[in-house]
């Protein structure tokens, strides 16, 4: 992980980075929307993946036992934004990435800073080192963090769009790293359940903590087989599936289940649907119900005007807004 600059210092702001690139003779890029808007989740095709049942022998539908109850103590989210700032000779893209993550503590129904190191903002340039002159790399490094988007042994030539995609992935990894650090910090010292925007399987130690509750809003991978798919799609508000295990070679195995927050009505069948992840160690039906009740309690207030409001908790929206403000 490269150096992390406090947002207030702005040492690696896009403006500073652009000036540094001008100094070394890079060709400035025309202003364009963020890469995340131009290439949203293009890398992962939608798919179904069978998962091992953890509660019963096969996936079933349960009404969440009990009324929604406030249990979440804090919210964790991260954001990223990347832009091509300049092109080195031969059209090598140099990308500026800003990532940020924060844990926001809920106190008196208001989200506040948990502690000084609970907010992390990182700005850096992302470029293929092998494609740049050493002097240029060194010069840029004196102004801001510069991260290599290639493996040490890779050699060109490279498709320019592939280089952009690699930069985007590098930025994403950096965001996940910050989020993981924030999650681990909370699980080590926080008090109460942490609502994590996204899965916790890749969150290092947090994946094993009873404090971390991952809530996944996107469903490019649905952890069901063909027979159970109608059950998931047919969930009604306040219903959940039985638990199953989500495991992959590079991630921790976690307990997971689908939970319907709102009836889809005129929306598509995945609207208002979230997949919850908790540590597998203490997962049982009662805990799944309790965690579901916590999440259901977060349906109000609505996360509007965010377009993902059907599955988004307002606390996560506030955390995102906070991160946008401090990383700007």
């Amino acid at each position: 992980m490269g150096p992390t600059y406090p947002s207030t210092e702005g040492a690696a702001s896009a403006r500073d980075a652009r000036r540094a690139l001008q100094r070394v003779g890079a060709f400035p890029a025309a202003p364009e929307p963020a890469l995340e808007l131009l290439r949203p989740d293009a890398s992962e095709p939608p798919r179904l993946q069978r998962a091992e049942p953890l509660e019963g022998d096969a996936m079933a539908v349960r009404a969440v036992d009990g009324a929604p109850v406030v249990g979440i103590a804090a919210f964790l989210d991260g954001i990223q934004q990347s832009r091509v700032l300049a092109y080195w000779r031969g059209g090598i893209p140099v990308v500026h990435g800003t990532v940020a993550a924060a844990v926001r503590l809920r106190r008196d129904r208001t989200l506040v800073r948990w502690r000084a190191d609970a907010d992390r903002v990182d700005r850096a340039l992302y470029a293929p080192r092998a494609a740049l002159d050493d002097s240029v790399w060194t010069s840029l490094s004196t102004t801001c963090a510069v991260r290599d988007t290639l493996s040490p042994d890779e050699r060109g030539p490279w498709h320019p769009q592939d280089l952009v995609a690699r930069a985007l992935h590098a930025v994403q990894r950096q965001r996940e790293a910050l989020e993981t650090a924030c999650a681990e910090r909370w699980c080590a010292a926080g008090d109460g359940p942490l609502f994590v925007d996204g899965g916790i399987a890749a969150a290092g130690g947090a994946a094993h903590s009873p404090l971390a509750v991952g809530v996944v809003k996107s469903h490019r991978t649905l952890y069901v087989d063909g027979a159970a798919l109608p059950l998931v799609l047919g969930l009604r508000a306040g219903e959940r599936t039985t638990m199953f295990t989500v495991a992959s070679p590079r991630r921790a195995a976690v307990a997971s289940w689908y939970l319907r927050l709102r009836d889809p009505a005129a929306h598509d069948a995945l609207w208002g649907l979230v997949r919850v992840e908790i540590a597998r160690d203490d997962a049982d039906g009662a805990r799944a119900d309790l965690v579901s009740r916590w999440i259901l309690a977060e349906r109000a207030p609505l996360a509007l005007p965010d377009p993902r409001w059907g599955a988004m908790a307002y606390g996560i929206r506030l955390t995102e807004e906070y991160l946008r403000a401090v990383s700007r």
């Binding site: 406030v70 809920r106 129904r109 208001t110 989200l111 207030p301 609505l302 606390g315």
Partner: peptide
């Protein structure tokens, strides 16, 4: 919408806007 049309529901929101 967030209060399901009932003002009394609004007070149950765990987070204030």
């Amino acid at each position: 919408l967030g209060a399901d049309g009932d003002p009394s529901n609004a007070v149950h929101a765990p987070t204030d806007r």
